[in-house]
Design a protein around this nucleic acid. Structure first.
Lengths: 318, 318
DNA sequence: TCGCACTATGGGTAATTGCTCACATGATGG
DNA sequence: CCATCATGTGAGCAATTACCCATAGTGCGA
């Protein structure tokens, strides 16, 4: 006749402790008393709630310096929208800074009652965004990937951005079942000739909203680090003027897609320059400045989420 | 040729420090180094950002126990929506617990792109909600007060809920320029005969959304504490079965408005029972249980935001 | 049944934070 | 011109929190 039910999950406990701590302003000692646990346990619960993202912290004040940068960027590049967040100092990962702002931007679209097709790229910036996203019900929208989900080494962990968002907001999602970059143009064509691939491609092409990261093509290029392009291919494209990449598609400093190197073998859909629909780029890091400028010049992206340091770097270019 | 500009406002500094602290996870010592200030100053900036509400904390996890209470309340009273937040212990002000959830509920409506007329009551619960509300652009909506803004002692500070929300979300607002409770039915009628009053009343009547607090009519009635009803009037209405009040209009345990006491002299618009549009009640505190039950029974409200303790108290009534 | 690896718990302790006090600075008004 | 008050600053200290470590369960496989 023992009660087998635990009544509460560990997450529930963590959430409750965090609620008392952050909303109630109680000390961990008081929480321990309230919940009948030791204060160490209370501390663990609170920090666990933080680590698991049960708690969201948002800043409700637009710092004047950031607002100025937003206005300057909008004017200079004719952006639809622009969001600049304070930087976190030289040492910190710039992704953590942009994540919450990017999530807020994404939630704007997800909260719209009319059904949207939202096309997504990949990369660390988007991954950070997902973590900062508030779970919600957004079943009316469809999430489609712009980029293939087959990696050269078979590892897919890096590419589940669409799946993870979809999971968090309960929206149907459409991965792009092709290699990120195929070994030959012929193999790429073979994949794209398949009817199921065509359907996803068509969906991505008519997306109402595009949300992508922006990668640089300097020697620290994400495409190189993640093993999608070889050192030789990178050299070749750099020599041809490559400065950046969106969803794997490489472009030069004017934002024009190159017609060489991996661009002939990249799977999925390239973002059409000059879309009238929102095309949001999420990117932070000084080394990305040239890439972001290129993408904005040709209007591959027409909206930007970045941090203060990067915004300053962009505006200081001639 | 001295630079007279301060470059940053104190709020900017506070926001930046808080950003580094909460988003960047830096210690106040590090922030001091980063910003070139003393660590005491960094501490002050962070706590100031908190005090001024620049920082919002939200819990992204529905605790199972609260979800259960929500379901139970929805089933029992046929509610459109219901939100139950964890309580903050016996000592704490129940308003702080409900404020953030109430704000989230309000923001749902404010974010809707189609113009809405939102009618609002008054009281501590709504005031708390305003403080927790994120500033936003919601110019498409109109905010109208259900309750008069002329207090017996002339003090209006308690009644600027509508104005404060409107200010925060940049929406046009329509105060109700009549006494909360007039000395005589005739004076009430005289006010309501005026054309400008009529216009506001008409607007309030056709509101798409109603958001109100719920007051109890026990000896700790807010109406008594705020000096709107006298002890004798309260006694009279209690004797007639009064248990609660919404926007100043008193009802009995079945949620039927009484036809006596101050109800004959209350200004503004009473919430029509059984609206098909959302009518959200925000109320927490064990002493409000009977009032909330009454309001839900006759469907003066069809949605509820409350806390765990109050929800339990409501469900434990026969 | 016995390890064995893994996780959770509580104690202790160093780091971090919040608070109070005394003092400086500057504006206001007699 | 000086008193007064408000506001802001830094120092010191007590309270609070985060982390480390030893130990106690707990499930799993041999």
């Amino acid at each position: 006749m023992s009660r087998a039910e635990p009544e509460t999950t560990p997450q529930d406990d963590a959430a409750r402790a965090a609620w008392l701590y952050y909303v109630g302003g109680m000390t961990q000692d008081q929480i321990a008393g309230e919940l009948g646990i030791s204060r160490q346990r209370a501390q663990r619960l609170v920090s666990r709630a933080m680590a698991e993202g049960l708690i969201h912290v948002r800043l409700n004040h637009r710092i004047a310096a950031c607002l100025d940068l937003e206005t300057a960027l909008k004017d200079r590049f004719g952006l639809l929208r622009c969001r600049v967040v304070p930087s976190l100092g030289p040492g910190a990962d710039p992704v953590t800074a942009t994540s919450s702002a990017a999530a807020a931007e994404m939630e704007r679209f997800l909260r719209m009652p009319d059904p949207l097709v939202i096309a997504l790229g990949t990369g660390r910036a988007l991954r950070g965004m997902v973590d900062a996203l508030t779970p919600m019900e957004a079943e009316q929208h469809r999430l489609v990937s712009l980029i293939g989900n087959i990696a050269p080494d078979g590892s897919a962990s890096f590419f589940d951005v669409v799946m993870r968002i979809a999971d968090k907001v309960r929206a149907p999602h459409y991965p792009m079942p092709v290699p990120v970059i195929s070994p030959t143009p012929e193999e790429r064509a073979a994949f794209h000739a398949l009817a199921p691939v065509q359907r996803v491609v068509d969906l991505a092409r008519k997306a109402d909203v595009v949300v992508v990261g922006v990668g640089q093509m300097s020697d620290d290029a994400p495409l190189l680090a993640d093993g999608f392009v070889s050192r030789a291919e990178l050299d070749e494209m750099q020599a041809a003027g490559a400065v950046g990449e969106v969803a794997g598609w490489v472009f030069d400093s004017a934002g024009n897609y190159l017609d060489l190197g991996t661009n002939r073998r990249t799977g999925g859909v390239r973002v059409t320059p000059g879309l009238d629909r929102p095309a949001v780029g999420i990117a932070a890091g000084a080394s990305k400045a040239l890439a972001i400028i290129g993408a904005m010049k040709s209007r591959i992206i027409n909206s930007l989420v970045t941090d203060e340091a990067t915004a300053t770097a962009i505006l200081n270019r001639p």
